[in-house]
Design a protein around this nucleic acid. Structure first.
Lengths: 307, 307
DNA sequence: CTCAGCGATACCGTGCGGGTATGGAGAGAC
DNA sequence: GTCTCTCCATACCCGCACGGTATCGCTGAG
C-alpha cells in the first residue's frame, strides 16, 4: 500500500507552503539537510517528483500540489482523530455543543432541559464562537454545533433542521429605514454590514464583530446594520428595531455534527433537539425525519459518551 | 498537536480488529512484543486507555472504539492521498472514469466525443465496475464515476445530475408480468432480484451479478427479474420486455467526483457532461447549475490533469 | 495443582532520523 | 568573465527507537 507517514506529510506541507527548505526547516525546528532527505525519500517512495528545484526557486509540481491538498486533509483527520479519542477517554464524559451567542433561535433552553431529562444524558458543555463554528466540529473539538443554512460548507457534516425563520433588518430607532414596515436587500446598498472572523473576506468591509452584544451595540451606535433571524428580537435592546426583509431568503437553524459519529449520547441529543424543535414549530411531521444515517443507526445502542 | 503516526494507526487497527496481539502481530508480519510496546506508547501519547486487557480477553474501550473508526478514515485518506499523488505524477495524464456497464443512460458516447473536442482534453480511461463504484473514487483510484441516485452514501463526493429516468421492470417475454402495461412494486413480491457485490447484503437473496450481459442473460433464463432505468432498453435482447413500474421513484444518473477536487481537466469533463446531458434532455436551464464549488472554482485555471 | 495461552518485560542489535560540515550550481553585481 | 551570495544536495557521524529473542507473570481450564 505504501502509505506516506504523518511526519513526512508535516515536513512536505511545510516545504510546500514555504517553498523554501531553509525556512521550512526553521519552522519545523530542525535543520535543513534532514528535511531535504525526508522529502527526497518521500518522492522516492511515491515514485513521483513533488518539487521543481530551481537553484534559486522551489516550485510545486502537479503531483506536489495534489499531495499538498490531500496531505492537509490527512493531517486534519489525524489531528481530529487524536482529539476525539482523547475526549472519548476523559473521565468526565460530556457533550460539547458550540453555539453562536444569540443564535439559538430561543430553542436552546428547552432543548437542554429536555435532553437532561433523557435517561443517560451527559452534561452539556457550551462553547460560544461567532465564526468558524463548523471548524470546531471538523477538528474534533466539539460534538455538535448550531449553524445556519444556507452555509458555505457543510461537507463532512450531518445535519438536522430545527427552525426556519424569516430574516429581519436590525437598525437603531433613529435609522432612515426604522419606520418602514418592510425593506428589500437593495435598500441596504451602502450600509456597512458586519463581518465576523473567518467569514467572506471580500464581502462587506464593515468592522469585525465577535459577539452579539458587541454587534447590537455597534448597531445602536449607527456603525452598522445587520440582517438577522427573527428570533434575535428576543434579545433586543430598547434602542433597536427590526424590519422584515422581504427578499432575504429565510434562514434555517440546523444542528450539525461530524458525519459518521456514533456516540449514543449525541444521537439522543439530536433526537431530543429535533423533537423540541418540532414541538415548538408544530411541524411534528418533520421531526426525526432527516437525522442522517450514522447517528440514527446508533440510537439503539447502550451507553457511551461524546466522541 | 501530538498527532498519531500512520504506522501506529496501522498497528492499532490490526489489534483492534483481531482483539488479539499475537494474531495482529502475525498479520502485520512482526513479532508480538514490539506491537504491545507500540500500542502502549500510543496510549501514553494520547493519554488514554484504548484497550481493556483481560489476561484472556482483549476488548476495546470507548476511546479505542473512537480511534478505530477515526483511524480508519485517516488511513483511507492517507492511502487515497498516495494514489492521487502518484496518478497526478504519471507521465501520461488521463482521466479515469468508472462506469457501470450499460448504466450510462446512453449519454456516454456523446459526452466522450464532446469532451475530446474540448481544448486540453485528456484521454479518458474507462473502468467498468458493477458494485463499489464510489469506493474507487474515495480510494483515489478514479477521477469520476457514473452513479445512480438515490444512492446509499454520497458523502465526500460532489455530484452533477445528468439524467432522470423512470424505472422499468425487465422480464423475459414469457414471464407472467410481461403482458402488463404497468406494474407496481408489490407485484414483484417473491421474485428473485439481482444482488451486486457490495450492495445491501440482507436485501434480496438472488444470485450475485457482475455485469449487465450476465444480468440480462439470467433474466432471460428466468432466474431473476430486475428493475432498471428506462435507457437500459437500448441494450435489449429480443427475448426481454420492459414494463413501467408505476410506484418506483425515478432514478437519476449522476456524475460524481471526490469533493475538493481541483483538476481543470475534471472540471472541463464535468462541464461537458452537464452540457451534453442538458442538450439531450432539453433542460438546458439545469445545466452547470449544480456542479459543486471546488470544481467550478478551478474551471478557469490553466491546464493540468487528473488528480 | 498443573498446564497452556497470552500479554508484559528485559535486553540487545541495527537502521534510520537528525545533526554538523561541506560541496556545487545558478543568479546577480561589477 | 568572474566573484559572490544563496540555497539545496551530499558526506559523514551519532543516538535513539524500532524490531527481534528470551522470559516472566497472570489467569482460566482441566
Amino acid at each position: 500500500m505504501e502509505r506516506p507517514e504523518v511526519r513526512e506529510l508535516v515536513y512536505f506541507t511545510a516545504v510546500a507552503e514555504e517553498l523554501h527548505f531553509g525556512r521550512a526547516a526553521a519552522r519545523l525546528g530542525m535543520s535543513q539537510p534532514p528535511l531535504s532527505r525526508a522529502i527526497q525519500q518521500l518522492e522516492r517512495r511515491l515514485g513521483v517528483a513533488l518539487l521543481d528545484r530551481g537553484s534559486r526557486r522551489v516550485a510545486l509540481t502537479e503531483a506536489g500540489a495534489v499531495l499538498l491538498r490531500e496531505g492537509r486533509t490527512v493531517l486534519d483527520a489525524a489531528a481530529a482523530a487524536a482529539r476525539r479519542t482523547r475526549r472519548a477517554g476523559r473521565a468526565d464524559p460530556h457533550l460539547v455543543l458550540v453555539i453562536k451567542p444569540g443564535g439559538d433561535g430561543g430553542l436552546l433552553p428547552a432543548i437542554l432541559d429536555a435532553y437532561q431529562a433523557e435517561p443517560g444524558a451527559l452534561p452539556v458543555e457550551l462553547v460560544c464562537s461567532f465564526g468558524e463554528r463548523e471548524l470546531l466540529l471538523r477538528e474534533g473539538r466539539a460534538d455538535a454545533a448550531l449553524l445556519h443554512r444556507p452555509h458555505p460548507d457543510l461537507t463532512g457534516l450531518d445535519t438536522q433542521d430545527l427552525l426556519t425563520e424569516p430574516q429581519f433588518l436590525v437598525v437603531p430607532r433613529s435609522h432612515r429605514l426604522a419606520g418602514r414596515t418592510r425593506v428589500c436587500l437593495d435598500d441596504l446598498a451602502g450600509e456597512p454590514l458586519p463581518r465576523w472572523p473567518g467569514a467572506s473576506e471580500g464581502g462587506s468591509p464593515g468592522p469585525e464583530v465577535h459577539d452579539l452584544g458587541q454587534l447590537l451595540h455597534l448597531i445602536a451606535l449607527r456603525r452598522m446594520v445587520a440582517v438577522l433571524p427573527s428570533s434575535i428580537r428576543d434579545q433586543f435592546r430598547d434602542d433597536l428595531v427590526a424590519v422584515p426583509v422581504e427578499d432575504a431568503e429565510p434562514t434555517t437553524l440546523v444542528l450539525a455534527w461530524p458525519e459518521h459519529a456514533t456516540s449514543p449520547a449525541l444521537a439522543a441529543f439530536v433526537r431530543t433537539a429535533a423533537a423540541v424543535a418540532g414541538k415548538a414549530t408544530g411541524t411534528a411531521a418533520a421531526v426525526a425525519s432527516q437525522a442522517t444515517g450514522a447517528v440514527a443507526a446508533v440510537a439503539g445502542q447502550a451507553t457511551g459518551h461524546g466522541g
